[in-house]
Design a protein around this nucleic acid. Structure first.
Lengths: 121, 121
DNA sequence: CATTCATATGAATAATTGTTCATATGTTTA
DNA sequence: TAAACATATGAACAATTATTCATATGAATG
C-alpha cells in the first residue's frame, strides 16, 4: 500500500534520456487520477461483479433475480451492487418493494470487450 | 471467494421473462472466461501497476529506471512487473545486466483510455 | 398497524495481496 | 574467478476484501 520512497540504492545511472524523463512526467496523469483509475479497475477485478455486469447487459434486473441467476445469496449480490453503484457502473430505480438495477453507461461494455479481446489474444 | 449456492430463500417469483433468462444463459461467457477476465482487470486494479503501464507507454524502460521515476524500490517494481508479465501486458528483453520492459500490445492503451473516459464522466 | 416481502447493511472471518527485507540468480568486468 | 551490478524471488507482515450471518430499513397488503 505504501508507495513511499526508500529508493536509495538504485542503479548507477539512468538509461533514459532527459527528454524521455521530461515527457513521462508531462504525459503522466495526476496522482489522484491514477489512483481513481486503479479503483475503477479494481471493481472489474472480481468475477461476481463481472457476472452481474454481463447479466445486466441483457436486461434491467432486480437484486433477487440476479441472485437466482447467479446462484448466490441476496446479501452477497446486494453488497456487490453497492460497489458497482459507488463506481457509477450501475444505476437503479425503485418500484414498490423491488429495486431494479441497470448498466449506467456504454463504457462498461467497451471495457469488458477490450478485456475479452486481450485474453483471447 | 465462494460463489456457491445457498440461494434457498429468494424472492417468491422471478420478474424476468423466460426469454430473458434463456438469453442471459446463452450470451453469458463461460465461467472460466469470466474468471480470466476478472483476473485481467485485477491487474489493472493497482495504482503502482497503472503507473508502470503509463510510464512504459512513453518508452521501453529498465526496472531500475522505472523504480527511480516512480520513487519506489527495485524489489517492489520487480514484483509488479512479474504480475504484468504474467498477464501478458508487458514483454521484456535482456541486454547485458539490464532488462528492458515494454508494453505488450495495444489493448493496454485502449483499456486505460476507456477507464479514464469513465472516471471523467 | 402488524405482517410479509425485497433489499440494505454492520460485524466477523477467511482469503488475497502489495511492500519490505534478505538473499539468490545472472551478467559483466577487472 | 572474484567483485560489482541489475534483476528476481521467497518469506513475512499489514492491509484490503468477498462472503456469510444476523438484523435493520422500506414498502405493500391484509
Amino acid at each position: 500500500m505504501e508507495e513511499n520512497a526508500s529508493a536509495l540504492e538504485q542503479c548507477d545511472y539512468m538509461h533514459l534520456h532527459d527528454k524521455v524523463i521530461e515527457q513521462v512526467q508531462e504525459e503522466m496523469p495526476q496522482e489522484e487520477i491514477l489512483y481513481d483509475l486503479a479503483e475503477l479497475f479494481k471493481v472489474f477485478g472480481d468475477s461476481t461483479r463481472i457476472k452481474i455486469l454481463y447479466v445486466l447487459f441483457q436486461s434491467e434486473m432486480c437484486v433477487c433475480d440476479i441472485a437466482q441467476l447467479l446462484h448466490m445469496s441476496q446479501s452477497a449480490i446486494s453488497h456487490q451492487l453497492r460497489v458497482l453503484k459507488q463506481a457509477q457502473l450501475v444505476k437503479y430505480r425503485r418500484e414498490g418493494k423491488t429495486v431494479f438495477y441497470a448498466l449506467a453507461d456504454a463504457h462498461v461494455n467497451t471495457i469488458l470487450n477490450q478485456g475479452l479481446e486481450h485474453i483471447e489474444e
